[in-house]
Every structure is written in C-alpha cells, then in structure tokens.
C-alpha cells in the first residue's frame, strides 16, 4: 500500500499531464473541422492500402460462394431470354378480347441447368466432353449444351451422375446455322483438324458474306434454341465450279479451356418429334 502511494506521489503529474493532453487533442479533434478532416485523411491513406489488399485476400475465400450465386443468377437471366419462349406476345388477339392484359401467357420452351466439365478431349477426330451432371439431375439425350459465350454441343449419353457430350469438334457434328446479315441458313461441320475452326456449308456462291459476321443457331432443330452464337466468319473463299462458298468459322467457345457449361432442355421436344415422326417414312 505504501508502495502504491509512493508510486502515485512520484508519477501523479505524468498521469495528469497525459490526461490533460488527451483532453486537449479530443477538443482539437472535435472543434476544428479542418484538423479532423486532415486526421481522417491521413488515417485513410495508411489504412486504405492495407484494407484493400486484405479485402482482396479475404475475397478469395468467398469466391466459391459468389460463383455459385452468379451461376444461379445467370440461369435465371437465361431463362428469361426471349428466345426461350414459344409465344412472346400476341397483341392483336388480346387487344380484341381484353384490353388490360396485353401480354399473353408466355409458354416456356426451354429450361436451363448448369454443369462443370470433368473431362474433355480436343485432339481427336471424335472428341467428347464429360460433365458432372446426369440422369439424376434430369439430363437426357440430345439436350443442347452451351458455354457462357457460345454453343458447345449435344448430350450423347447419360449415366446416373455424368453425361457425355458430342462437341462441335466432332466429325459427326451437323448444326443448322443462320447468318443473320444475309438471312441464309447453312450447316456447320467440322473437318477434324483445328478444334477452334469449323466450316459453314450450304451458302450459295452469289451471297455476300463478310469476315467477322456472326453465325447463330437457326432454331430449326429441336435441340438448340434459336439465336445462340456458334462463331464468327474467319475466312471466305470460293472455288471454281463450286455451288457453295467455303466459309471458315472461328468457334466462339474455347474448347481447350472449358469449365462451366449450360445444359438446355427443350420442354416440347417429344411433342415436336412426334409430329416429325409422321413424315419420316416418306
């Protein structure tokens, strides 16, 4: 106890000076706005780089979750695209019947899900891709597979947890394509060489096609929705005595670095196929 009193006796003035100084600085900080602003700015200039880099580091831990959320959001947006619906609106009919409901009921034509690529080849004539979703997730044969930038291929086989895909770089590929600038339908095939290059056939010689024109799916098959990007025109050459142009197409999807794919289901495929079946024999 004596020691404590002695200690306080010896050092009391230091404590007092410290306390009074603190009061002074609090008063300065509170009363003088320029000083406060300046202090805040100096503190910020020190802490901002630290917070930024730390935030970047922390951000990595939440990237997985964020990715999943973005995927879900992407799916929602893809489902809302106009070419996903059979009937968009029918103004003349509805205006006649009811004035307040201009938008008719839209019939959903396609549904989406997403999957990750587990295995893929690009250097064979008959390439294939394996994705991590199967019949358990509702996948079936002949569903279209898209990447975020363009078309990938078609589901060929489905097991319980996995599915195999025939990608565009496959010698059996035949995709009905549309060149919107000339409104000409053709067929996209692959020649078995470069997995980034395909060919567009069936475009007649007299049509003008420019390098850089985009080539979309036509929507004539029951597999692919209409208006999905296949690629862009890279090279156009016309040979003597040939009926059709030789058009090199640079594929939009990079098959060598493919991870995320969307699987598209045509909800009315069986219905359309049953109609088509009637004509098969003729």
């Amino acid at each position: 106890m004596n020691n404590l009193i002695e200690f306080i006796k010896n050092y009391f003035h230091h404590f007092l000076a410290a306390v009074l100084l603190v009061i002074c600085f609090v008063l300065i900080g509170n009363s003088m706005s320029y000083n406060r602003y300046k202090i805040a700015r100096i503190c910020q200039s020190i802490t901002m780089p630290i917070e930024k880099s730390w935030g970047k580091l922390i951000h990595h831990f939440s990237l997985n979750k964020e990715n999943e959320q973005l995927l879900q959001q992407n799916l929602e947006l893809l489902r809302e695209q106009e070419n996903m619906y059979l009937v968009k609106e029918d103004t003349t009919l509805t205006q006649m019947s009811e004035t307040d409901s201009i938008h008719t009921e839209r019939i959903r034509m396609y549904d989406y899900t997403y999957a990750h690529v587990t295995y893929s080849t690009t250097d064979k004539p008959f390439n294939y891709i394996v994705i991590d979703k199967g019949s358990k997730d509702g996948l079936e044969r002949d569903m279209a597979v898209l990447s975020p930038v363009g078309i990938v291929g078609v589901v060929s086989d489905v097991s319980k947890n996995f599915s195999s895909i025939i990608p565009i770089p496959h010698l059996d590929t035949r995709i009905s394509a549309l060149v919107p600038t000339i409104n000409q339908v053709g067929t996209v095939v692959w020649d078995g060489k470069d997995p980034g290059i395909a060919y567009l056939n069936d475009v007649p010689q007299h049509l003008e096609i420019n390098i850089g024109d985009s080539i979309l799916t036509s929507g004539f098959s029951t597999i692919y929705p209409k208006g999905i990007l296949i690629g862009t025109v890279k090279e156009v050459s016309s040979e003597q005595n040939a009926t059709f142009l030789t058009i090199k197409v640079k594929l939009a999807t990079d098959f060598k670095n493919l991870d995320l794919v969307y699987v598209v289901k045509n909800l009315y495929r069986s219905e359309i196929d049953s109609l088509k079946a009637n004509f098969k024999d003729e």
Partner: peptide, 19 residues
Amino acid sequence: DMFTHTLGVNAAACIIMLI
C-alpha cells in the same frame, strides 16, 4: 482557446511547455 475559437490548441501547447 475559447476566445480564439481554437479549442485545445493553446491548452496542449501550455501542458507540453510545462512538462
């Protein structure tokens, strides 16, 4: 400080000077 509207400035200077 109260009269110069610089609350705390002179007080802090005085205390440091007295230290």
